Simulated scan of single mutants.
Amino acid sequence: MGLTAPPLTGTSWGTAVVCKNLKWTSTIPRSLAPGNYLIRHELLALHQANTPQFYPECAQLVVSGDGTLLPPASYMYNIPTYASMTDPGVMIDIYSSTATTYTCPGGDLWSGFYA
């Protein structure tokens, strides 16, 4: 991701992309099975140590087409409990951390869309 520490810096943070483009663009893969979906996008502000700020947005989508792929149940996460407040990606102090990488909180991302 191009992030270094301390402090964690770089241009690959999602917030840097939003600030530069004033939007976030995502593509719904053609391989996704038709149906109703809830997509959640979130910015997580980490600029105050031990005081994470969550800025979630949701969109309801109706997908049509002839895709057949669905993520396994292990990739379905409950909102808002997908990440605990003790998750290292939530409670990191970006100004004094000795971390050299950052892992977003929550579970793994399903890459099956792009297989």
Results as ranks from 00 to 15, higher is better:
residue 3 L to V: 14
residue 3 L to P: 00
residue 3 L to Y: 06
residue 3 L to H: 00
residue 7 P to C: 02
residue 7 P to V: 03
residue 7 P to N: 10
residue 8 L to W: 00
residue 8 L to Y: 01
residue 10 G to H: 06
residue 11 T to I: 02
residue 11 T to E: 12
residue 13 W to G: 09
residue 14 G to M: 08
residue 14 G to N: 03
residue 14 G to Y: 05
residue 15 T to D: 07
residue 16 A to G: 02
residue 17 V to T: 08
residue 17 V to S: 06
residue 18 V to P: 11
residue 18 V to M: 06
residue 19 C to Y: 11
residue 20 K to L: 06
residue 20 K to C: 06
residue 21 N to Q: 15
residue 21 N to C: 06
residue 22 L to K: 15
residue 22 L to Y: 07
residue 23 K to N: 15
residue 24 W to V: 08
residue 26 S to N: 14
residue 27 T to H: 09
residue 28 I to S: 08
residue 29 P to I: 01
residue 29 P to Y: 03
residue 30 R to W: 06
residue 30 R to A: 09
residue 31 S to R: 11
residue 32 L to M: 10
residue 32 L to W: 02
residue 33 A to S: 11
residue 33 A to R: 12
residue 34 P to L: 11
residue 35 G to A: 03
residue 37 Y to S: 01
residue 39 I to V: 12
residue 40 R to M: 13
residue 40 R to G: 10
residue 41 H to G: 15
residue 41 H to R: 08
residue 42 E to G: 02
residue 42 E to H: 04
residue 44 L to M: 10
residue 45 A to M: 10
residue 45 A to C: 10
residue 46 L to H: 11
residue 46 L to P: 02
residue 46 L to E: 00
residue 47 H to W: 01
residue 47 H to I: 01
residue 47 H to V: 01
residue 48 Q to E: 09
residue 49 A to H: 11
residue 50 N to F: 13
residue 50 N to H: 15
residue 50 N to L: 11
residue 52 P to K: 06
residue 52 P to R: 10
residue 53 Q to T: 14
residue 54 F to G: 03
residue 56 P to C: 09
residue 57 E to M: 14
residue 59 A to P: 03
residue 59 A to F: 05
residue 60 Q to F: 09
residue 60 Q to C: 12
residue 60 Q to P: 05
residue 60 Q to S: 12
residue 61 L to R: 01
residue 62 V to I: 00
residue 62 V to T: 13
residue 62 V to Q: 14
residue 63 V to L: 00
residue 65 G to N: 08
residue 66 D to T: 11
residue 67 G to K: 00
residue 67 G to V: 00
residue 67 G to R: 04
residue 67 G to Y: 02
residue 68 T to V: 14
residue 69 L to I: 13
residue 69 L to P: 05
residue 70 L to F: 00
residue 70 L to N: 08
residue 72 P to Q: 02
residue 74 S to R: 08
residue 74 S to Y: 02
residue 75 Y to M: 05
residue 78 N to G: 14
residue 78 N to R: 14
residue 80 P to F: 05
residue 80 P to R: 09
residue 85 M to Y: 14
residue 85 M to F: 12
residue 86 T to K: 10
residue 86 T to I: 04
residue 87 D to G: 11
residue 87 D to F: 08
residue 87 D to P: 07
residue 87 D to I: 01
residue 88 P to D: 02
residue 91 M to K: 15
residue 91 M to V: 13
residue 92 I to L: 13
residue 93 D to F: 06
residue 93 D to A: 08
residue 93 D to K: 13
residue 93 D to Q: 12
residue 94 I to Y: 01
residue 95 Y to K: 08
residue 95 Y to V: 09
residue 97 S to A: 11
residue 97 S to L: 06
residue 98 T to R: 14
residue 99 A to F: 05
residue 100 T to C: 01
residue 101 T to D: 13
residue 101 T to I: 01
residue 102 Y to P: 02
residue 103 T to A: 07
residue 104 C to F: 03
residue 104 C to T: 09
residue 104 C to P: 04
residue 105 P to Y: 05
residue 105 P to V: 07
residue 106 G to A: 08
residue 107 G to M: 04
residue 108 D to H: 11
residue 109 L to S: 06
residue 109 L to C: 09
residue 110 W to I: 10
residue 110 W to K: 08
residue 111 S to I: 00
residue 112 G to I: 02
residue 112 G to N: 00
residue 113 F to Y: 12
residue 114 Y to F: 03
residue 115 A to H: 13
residue 115 A to K: 13
